[in-house]
């Protein structure tokens, strides 16, 4: 929290501080995709810091196609009843009504996610209108700041969900970090031109230029399948990790989940990451993200 706020009112409001506060509490942890109470329990027992409810994990969405929507209400209630850790849930990009339903179900965080089929090709949800915090994906700094401008209290990389290939999460983490570093080198005269080039709100560009980081927590998602993948995200500056298909599409979800939690905490200690990985068998087979054709990419949804 900056002592000399440059934001207009929504960002210094108590409502926004409480949203970012929960994101702060999730740092250093692993947020796991789950489709039912049984998976949620496995995730909690493995040490997940939160679970993410969705209709189908990204690998299944990719395989089966069709329209991917918010998780059924009954499943969300079942997951909320099963665990004591925060429960997040995904809504479609721009689907204001799904977001409102999730808020009325008292989920702890909403992920306005490109993994689901977008409901609006131009607009994302105006997130300051909600009391529940939102997380959104990004591929670069401009996209991150546009989402924060709309009220996102947490940012994650998009990666390429459902592939088990970490390459695009790395690309997006590197891009955001590089662009933030570049901003800190600019003189004040150059800020507005940078805002124009990033297509990002000026006040947020100024904040990043002065602090060298995002004004909300910066997590990684998309293609994390192994403990080493999680450690890599932390090495590259992600403050926590989302794991989608990587756990429940592996042969041994409980052990893999536990190992990824361990590696996320001890990312800077290779011996601990090795020890965590020791008993693991086959991970998800995965798809090389670079071999996907443009129409198969999830990360290009939203802007």
């Amino acid at each position: 929290m900056s002592s000399t706020p440059v934001f207009s009112t929504p960002f210094t409001s108590d409502a926004f501080r409480v949203k970012v506060g929960l994101a702060e509490m999730l740092k250093g942890g692993v947020i796991m995709d789950v489709v039912n109470a049984e998976q949620a329990k496995i995730a909690e027992d493995a040490g997940a810091s939160a679970v993410m409810a969705l209709e189908r994990v990204p690998a299944d969405i990719r395989r089966d196609g069709g329209v991917a929507r918010m998780s059924p209400v009954s499943k969300i209630r079942e997951i909320e009843a099963a665990v004591s850790i925060p429960v997040m849930a995904k809504c479609r990009i721009g689907h204001i009504a799904e977001a409102r339903v999730l808020e009325s179900l008292e989920v702890d965080f909403i992920d306005e996610s490109e993994v689901l089929t977008p409901a609006d090709e131009e607009n994302h949800v105006y997130k300051h209108d909600f009391k529940v915090p939102f997380v959104c994906g990004c591929r670069n700094l401009g996209e991150a700041l546009r989402r924060i401008g709309e009220g996102a209290a947490m940012i994650r990389t998009k990666g390429e969900a459902g592939t088990g290939d970490i390459v695009h999460a790395v690309k997006h983490l590197r891009a955001v970090t590089r662009q933030m570093k570049s901003l800190t080198l600019l003189s004040r005269d150059e800020w507005m031109a940078a805002a124009k080039q990033l297509a990002a709100p000026f006040e947020l560009v100024v904040w990043v230029a002065e602090h060298g980081k995002l004004p909300v927590p910066n997590f990684a998602a998309g293609g994390v399948a192994t403990p080493a993948d999680a450690a890599l995200c932390r090495i590259l500056g992600a403050e926590a990790v989302f794991v989608g298909s990587g756990i429940f599409k592996s042969d041994d979800p409980a052990n893999r989940a536990r190992a990824i939690v361990e590696a996320t905490t001890h990312w800077d200690d290779p011996a601990r990451v090795a020890a965590a990985s020791e008993k693991l068998v086959e991970g998800m087979k995965g798809i090389e993200a670079g071999k996907l054709v443009e129409s198969e990419l999830l990360q290009t949804r939203g802007w």
Partner: peptide
């Protein structure tokens, strides 16, 4: 943070 996560770790 999450106390259940910390216990596990």
């Amino acid at each position: 943070g999450e106390s259940t996560t910390m216990w596990k770790l």
